[in-house]
Simulated scan of single mutants.
Amino acid sequence: MAREVQITFDCADPAALSAFWAEALGYRLMDPPEGFTSWEQALEAMGVPPERRNDASAVVDPEGAGPRLFFQRVPEGKQAKNRVHLDVRAAPGLTGESRMAALEAEAVRLAAHGATRVRRFEPHPPLGAGHLVMTDPEGNEFCLD
């Protein structure tokens, strides 16, 4: 039986990191519970104190195809290289220099939202198509592929 997948990020600022990944992936903030027009209103009604209202956030694919991304506040910072990372497919169907140009353009766009470019891997046909390694605003590695 197939399972639904959620990807969870430990982080310091769930609201900011979820906003970054929504921008990176074309996702949107998950809607508040039914009957509420905002998360602030829902959390107030649930009795969540103001200092705990940024403990978690989630973004979803507006078309329902991709996994939900969940961001939870943790007290410790990132300690080492990720063992699992996301590959953002920013140049599907492109090859060679047009592919790398599309990846470079996406890297510039995401840098404007807090990402950092780490390294470029050149294409090595027939197997390697080339990619860029980036980090999100909290230092989590991801690839533009």
Rank of each mutant, 00 (worst) to 15 (best):
1 M>W: 14
2 A>C: 12
2 A>F: 14
6 Q>R: 15
7 I>A: 09
8 T>D: 12
9 F>S: 01
10 D>I: 08
10 D>S: 12
12 A>Y: 08
12 A>I: 11
12 A>Q: 15
12 A>D: 12
14 P>Q: 05
14 P>K: 06
15 A>G: 09
15 A>Y: 00
17 L>I: 01
17 L>F: 01
18 S>Y: 00
19 A>D: 06
24 A>M: 00
26 G>K: 06
26 G>I: 05
26 G>E: 06
27 Y>I: 01
28 R>M: 06
28 R>A: 09
29 L>W: 10
29 L>Y: 11
29 L>P: 11
29 L>F: 11
30 M>S: 15
32 P>Q: 04
32 P>H: 00
32 P>S: 02
33 P>D: 03
33 P>M: 04
34 E>F: 11
34 E>K: 12
36 F>P: 03
37 T>N: 14
38 S>E: 04
41 Q>G: 04
41 Q>D: 12
43 L>M: 07
44 E>F: 01
44 E>Q: 11
45 A>R: 04
46 M>Q: 15
48 V>P: 03
49 P>V: 05
51 E>M: 13
54 N>V: 00
54 N>Y: 00
54 N>K: 03
55 D>K: 12
55 D>F: 12
56 A>P: 10
57 S>E: 15
58 A>M: 10
60 V>I: 14
61 D>S: 09
62 P>K: 07
62 P>G: 04
62 P>L: 07
62 P>T: 05
64 G>F: 07
66 G>Y: 06
68 R>W: 10
70 F>W: 15
71 F>C: 02
71 F>R: 02
72 Q>Y: 14
72 Q>K: 13
72 Q>P: 09
73 R>L: 06
74 V>E: 08
75 P>Q: 11
75 P>V: 09
75 P>K: 11
76 E>Y: 13
76 E>R: 13
77 G>H: 12
79 Q>F: 13
80 A>R: 15
83 R>L: 14
83 R>P: 09
83 R>G: 13
85 H>W: 12
85 H>A: 11
86 L>K: 04
87 D>R: 02
87 D>G: 07
87 D>P: 07
88 V>T: 03
89 R>P: 12
91 A>F: 03
91 A>R: 03
91 A>Y: 03
91 A>K: 05
92 P>K: 07
92 P>Y: 05
92 P>S: 07
93 G>D: 06
93 G>N: 06
94 L>C: 03
94 L>Y: 06
94 L>M: 10
94 L>E: 08
95 T>G: 11
97 E>K: 10
98 S>E: 15
99 R>C: 01
103 L>V: 02
103 L>D: 02
105 A>V: 07
105 A>E: 11
105 A>W: 04
106 E>G: 06
108 V>C: 00
108 V>T: 06
110 L>S: 00
111 A>W: 03
111 A>Y: 02
112 A>T: 06
112 A>Q: 10
113 H>I: 02
113 H>C: 09
113 H>G: 01
113 H>W: 08
115 A>L: 03
115 A>I: 02
116 T>K: 12
119 R>G: 08
121 F>M: 14
121 F>Y: 15
124 H>T: 15
124 H>Q: 15
124 H>P: 13
125 P>S: 07
127 L>C: 14
127 L>G: 14
128 G>S: 10
129 A>R: 15
136 D>F: 02
138 E>F: 09
141 E>F: 10
142 F>I: 04
142 F>N: 00
143 C>N: 05
145 D>N: 15
145 D>E: 15
